[in-house]
Design a protein around this nucleic acid. Structure first.
Lengths: 198, 198, 198, 198
DNA sequence: AATGAATGAGGATTCATTCAT
DNA sequence: GATGAATGAATCCTCATTCAT
C-alpha cells in the first residue's frame, strides 16, 4: 500500500492508519505512533512536517492505492456493463479486504483535516474519474438515463459505503449474492428501459 | 430541535452541534463550548456528566427530531409509492435545512463515542423503522424485489448522504428536479418490473 | 459528640468527620458534605464561614468531647496510680470506641489547617492539662523521676497512638491484657525505683 | 537522600518533599512542583506516571534512606543495650536532622495514598526489622519482659514521634540530656527488673 | 539520520464559594 | 432560613512539537 515510501515513512503511515481506525484520531497521539511504529518522534518529524502532514500523506497514498486497485482490473475492450460490474466489485472488495483504508477515506474525504490540495492530487489518481467515464459511456450508448455521471457515481458509492457499514456492524451479511443484487439494483436505478410509472 | 431541554442544556447542545460540525470533535473543547454557549464550564457539568454525555444527548435528541420530522408527513392511507416519496423527500429536506444535525448523525452513528444504549434508545424514535415498514409493504404488494428492507434502506440512505455531501461541497446542485430523479432511481433500483438483462 | 450545636451544624460536623476519615480531606468536597448531610451548600455557608471553619469547629468539638470523656472518670480522691490508670484507659477507649474522632485529632493537631487560636481554645478543654497534673502529682509524691510532665505525657500518648495504629491495621490485637501491659510499661518507664544500669 | 535517582527525578522528589511538608499534600499541585523544581509538568510525567507515583517513590526512597541511616551505625558485636541506644539515637537524629523525611514517613505510612506494594518494598529496607531484632535479643537474654517486639518498637517509636513533634513546635527542647532520659525511660518501660507494684 | 528528553499550552474536570430565588 | 444553580480558577494530565546529543 505504501510502496513508494521509504521504510520509516511506511512504518509511520501503516501504524497511523491502524491506530486511527482502531482508536479514532483523537486517541492517536504522536507518541503512540512513535511507540507502535518503532520510529522516534524526532525522526517522524524528520520525514513528516506535522501530524496533519501524516494524515494527508496517508490520504493521498490510500486514494492512489484504491485507484490502482480498481482500475487495474478494467479493460477498455469489455462491454460497458462488464466494466461497470468489475469496477464496483473492486470497490466492494476494497471495502472488504482493505477495510481500514476504505474507512479512512470514507471518514476523511470530507474532513477539514485534509487539505484541498490533497484532495485535488488524490482525485487524479483515484477511481472516481475512470468510474465516471464508464457511466458517460453508458449514457452515450443509450443505456443510462441522462443524469450527471458524478451524481450517479456518488449515489452508488454511497450505497456501497452504507452496505459495508451494515456489514461491518453485522447487520447484514454481504455475500456474493447480495453483492450481485446490489450491483444489479445500481444498474436498474439508472438504466433507461423502465421508468417510475406516475 | 431541543425543545424538551431547559435553557442551559439547549444552549450547550446547540453550541456543541455547531462547533462539532464546523471544527470537528477534537477541536471542540469544553472551554470553547462554555465560551460560545455562555454557560460556565462548572455549570455545564451540573447538567451533563461529561463531554461524552453531551455528545450522546445530542445524538439522541437529533435522531428523535429527525424521526419526528420524517414521520409527521407520512399518512398510512397514502399509496406505498406516495409514502416512499414523502419519506425520502423529508430525509433530503433534513439534509438541506438541518445540515448540521444531519451531518452529525452521519458522522457519529457508527462511532464508538456513542454508547450502544444511546443507539438503541435512538432507534426507537428514528425514521429507520417506519422507512423499513414502507419497503416491507412494497415487497408485500409485489412492487419491490425480495431484498432485505434494511439493506435497501441503507443503500438509498447512503445515496442520499453522498448526494448531500456533493451538494454541500458545491459539486452538484440538488434542485427539485435532481431530487425527483434520484428518488425515481431509488424506486427503479429495487422495483420488480425491471431486470438487468444478462 | 456535638450536643452544643444545632441540628444543621451537627449534621454537617458529623458528616464531615466521617468523610474525612473515610476518604481523606482532599476527597471531602463541600458538595459531598452537602449531599451526605442533607444540608444544601448554601445553608452550610449560613452556619460555617468556610470549609476551614468546619474543620476547625470539628477540631474544637472533638478535643472538648475527648477532654470530658477522659476527665469525667477521674476522681481526685483516688491514688495517683489509680488516676493514671483510669486516665490512660479512657484515652485508649476513645481510640477504640470513637476511632474517627481520635484519628482526626491525631491527623490534624499539627496541621496548618487548624488555626493556632483553635488549638489554644482546645487545649483548655482537652485532657492534656489534667493528665499533666497527674504526672506532676506523681513527681511531687516521689513516684516519678523529675522530667517535664508535658514530655512524659507526649511520650505515652505517642505510644498509645502507635499501638492503636497497629491495632487498626490488624498488626496487633489490643486486648485488655495488652493494654494493661502497655500502661504498666508507661509507669515503669518513668517510675523512680529503678534505673538503667550503666 | 535520592542518590539512586537521576537529576530530574531528584529535583522533583526533593521539591515534592519540601512542598508537602510545608504546605500539605492538597496544596502541593503538580504545577507548583514543576515551578519549584524547575522541571516542566510534561517532563515530570516523563519520569513519573502520576502524582501518586511521585509520592510513592518518595516514600520508598525515604524509608530506604532512613533504614540505612539507622543500621549503618549498628554493630552486632555491641551489647544489646548499646545497640538499643545507638539505634534509637539514630532515629532521633533522623527526626532532628532530616525532619521533612521523618515527618513525611510519619504522615504517610498509614495513608491509603501509599500502595501496599510500596509499603512492602519499603519494609524490607527500613529500620523496623533490625530494631525488632534487637528487642528480640533483649528478650532472649532475659533483659526485657516478654512482649511482642513489634508492639514495643511501635510504642517507643510513637514516643519519639511525639517528642519530636513537641520539639518542632518548640514546646520542648530536645537536648542530649533529654534524649538520654527518654531512651532510659524506654528501656525501663520494658526492662524485666522493674514492676508496677499493685 | 536518529534518539527521546524537554517544553508548556491546552485538555477535561472539580470544587470552594456566591447569589438569585 | 434554605435551596441549588452558577461561577471560573485551579486541578491533574496529555500532546504536538522542538532540540541537544
Amino acid at each position: 500500500m505504501f510502496e513508494r515510501y521509504n521504510k520509516v515513512q511506511r512504518a509511520v503511515l501503516e501504524t497511523t492508519l491502524h491506530l486511527i481506525i482502531d482508536k479514532e484520531l483523537q486517541a492517536t497521539s504522536m507518541s503512540l505512533i512513535a511507540k507502535e511504529s518503532g520510529v522516534s518522534t524526532g525522526n517522524i518529524y524528520h520525514y513528516f512536517s506535522s501530524k496533519e502532514d501524516i494524515i494527508n500523506e496517508l490520504y493521498k497514498a490510500i486514494v492512489l492505492f484504491n485507484g490502482e486497485f480498481v482500475t487495474k482490473n478494467l479493460n477498455a475492450a469489455d462491454s460497458v456493463q462488464e466494466q461497470f460490474r468489475r469496477a464496483w466489485r473492486s470497490v466492494i472488495e476494497l471495502g472488504k479486504n482493505h477495510p481500514k483504508g476504505f474507512r479512512f477515506i470514507e471518514q476523511y474525504s470530507f474532513s477539514p483535516y485534509i487539505y484541498e490540495q490533497s484532495k485535488l492530487e488524490a482525485y487524479k489518481g483515484g477511481w472516481c474519474g475512470p468510474m465516471e467515464k464508464i457511466y458517460r459511456q453508458a449514457i452515450d450508448q443509450g443505456l443510462f438515463v441522462e443524469l450527471e455521471p458524478h451524481m450517479m457515481v456518488q449515489m452508488h458509492y454511497g450505497s456501497i459505503v452504507y452496505l459495508l457499514k451494515s456489514h461491518q456492524q453485522n447487520m447484514l451479511e454481504l455475500t456474493a449474492d447480495v453483492e450481485e443484487q446490489a450491483l444489479r439494483s445500481f444498474w436498474n436505478a439508472v438504466s433507461k428501459e423502465k421508468g417510475w410509472n406516475e
